[in-house]
Amino acid sequence: MAVEDVLRLAHVLGATVLFGTGVGIAFFMVMAVRTREPRIVAHVAGIVVIADTVFTATAVVLQPLTGYWLARSIGWPLNEGWIILSLVLYVIVGLFWLPVVWIQIRLRNMARHAAAKAAPLPPAFYRLYRIWVAFGFPAFFAVVAIFWLMLTKPALF
Score class of each variant (00 low, 15 high):
88 V>P: 00
40 I>Q: 13
50 I>T: 12
69 W>G: 01
13 L>E: 08
82 W>V: 02
125 F>S: 05
86 S>Y: 02
136 G>H: 05
30 V>T: 11
24 G>M: 06
27 F>C: 05
4 E>W: 05
138 P>R: 04
65 L>V: 15
5 D>G: 12
48 V>R: 10
137 F>E: 05
130 R>E: 09
132 W>L: 00
122 P>N: 04
147 F>D: 09
60 V>S: 14
107 L>N: 09
95 L>F: 07
18 L>N: 09
114 A>I: 01
19 F>S: 14
147 F>I: 07
122 P>V: 04
87 L>M: 11
3 V>Y: 14
121 L>H: 05
45 A>L: 01
107 L>S: 08
125 F>H: 11
46 G>M: 04
131 I>L: 15
139 A>G: 01
12 V>W: 13
141 F>R: 07
55 F>S: 09
68 Y>F: 15
86 S>H: 06
14 G>H: 06
47 I>H: 13
91 V>P: 00
140 F>G: 08
148 W>T: 12
64 P>V: 01
154 P>Q: 11
113 H>T: 12
125 F>M: 10
9 L>Y: 15
133 V>W: 09
94 G>Q: 06
119 A>M: 13
9 L>N: 11
46 G>L: 00
80 E>K: 10
94 G>K: 06
135 F>R: 04
43 H>R: 15
121 L>S: 05
55 F>I: 07
6 V>H: 08
66 T>W: 12
27 F>W: 14
47 I>F: 14
119 A>V: 00
105 I>S: 11
47 I>Y: 13
41 V>Y: 05
147 F>Q: 08
76 W>M: 05
34 R>W: 04
22 G>C: 03
26 A>D: 08
46 G>P: 01
138 P>F: 04
30 V>F: 14
92 I>Q: 02
99 P>I: 12
62 L>M: 14
106 R>P: 01
